[in-house]
């Protein structure tokens, strides 16, 4: 084939590739990399968000302050409790739901749509709906009273520390379980049918097939979902923010992201908030790195 202007086919393809990728890269640089680098830079400065004065370099003082701040450690604890509390049900429920959906091929699309719809809902709307449900006169108390055969008991969904934590976890699991179910459905769908057929011929029932064929081959998907869910949980913000602004107490649910928001926006301390963001970023980076390391050893081949 004749080469145009001295470029090989591969080079031309690569050039078009760059052209197509450039807008996304630019977008990424402006809206992701720049804020990350800027946060990292600002974390070494004392800067009042409102002030026109240049920031003052204070080295690691923001980090030192955070290490001895009880509020910061409380928010770390709250984030950890929330992450563990939401992550496990998210993982288990989405796997169960995906396995269930795969056994119902006629209703697969409908179930997926139904489960995914909360994820498409704005977090603000979702939290507002659940605030109504958790209102002392709302459905949550009515349902629990009916279930426990009690009358007029207030289960303090928003007004006791433990129940408040549970409430935020419920909202989060409800919102994102469909999202992870869809990923699991895709993972299960990618397992060749011949493997299941072979197992059935060998006399395996559905249960054995799931535990000995589907589950082991789903490891990469499970790993992906677990890391994604964990990172998602670490970044949780809107549910806690809306609950707190609607009167729920902040102490049990002030997660790191909410602490970052309060420190920057309410206390004007953008340097300290940036230091917290950097620490959160490092934690998430560690999880991603672990996922990449583990995924290398967990690759599955159907050949």
């Amino acid at each position: 084939m004749r080469q145009r202007r001295g470029f090989s086919m591969e080079q031309r393809k690569a050039r078009w590739g760059w052209i197509f990728v450039t807008p996304s890269l630019l977008f990424f640089f402006v809206f992701s990399f720049y804020p990350i680098f800027n946060s990292f830079y600002l974390s070494f400065f004392r800067k009042n968000l409102l002030s026109l004065k240049p920031p003052t370099f204070i080295g690691l003082d923001n980090y030192k302050y955070l290490m001895r701040s009880s509020l910061f450690w409380q928010s770390v604890k709250n984030t950890a409790v929330f992450t563990v509390g939401a992550f496990l049900p998210l993982l288990v429920l989405s796997l169960i739901l995906a396995a269930f959906i795969m056994t119902r091929p006629r209703f697969r699309k409908g179930f997926q749509m139904l489960l995914y719809s909360p994820a498409a809902l704005s977090s603000v709307v979702a939290a507002l709906i659940w605030l109504l449900i958790f209102d002392p006169r709302g459905i949550a108390n009515q349902a629990l009273n009916a279930l426990m055969n009690t009358s007029g008991v207030n289960y303090h969904w928003l007004s006791s520390p433990g129940m408040l934590r549970l409430s935020t976890i419920i909202v989060y699991v409800w919102k994102y379980v469909g999202y992870f179910t869809v990923i699991f459905v895709a993972g299960i769908g990618a397992i060749p049918g011949s493997l299941h057929e072979a197992a059935l011929i060998d006399g395996a029932d559905r249960w054995t097939d799931f535990w000995h064929i589907t589950f082991p081959l789903l490891k990469p998907t499970t790993l992906l979902v677990s890391v994604m869910a964990m990172i998602q949980c670490l970044k949780t913000f809107s549910t806690q923010y809306l609950f707190v602004t609607s009167g729920a107490m902040s102490q049990p649910i002030e997660v790191i992201t909410l602490n970052i928001y309060n420190t920057a926006i309410k206390d004007y301390s953008i340097g300290r908030a940036s230091a917290m963001s950097v620490l959160l970023f490092l934690v998430m980076l560690t999880f991603t790195w672990v996922q990449l390391r583990l995924s290398r050893t967990e690759e599955v081949s159907y050949m």
């Binding site: 303090h156 007004s159 006791s160 520390p161 107490m249 902040s250 102490q251 049990p252």
Partner: peptide
């Protein structure tokens, strides 16, 4: 102040 009030009222 809000945190203090909520702490005594709800915990």
């Amino acid at each position: 102040i809000g945190d203090a009030v909520q702490a005594v009222m709800m915990s």
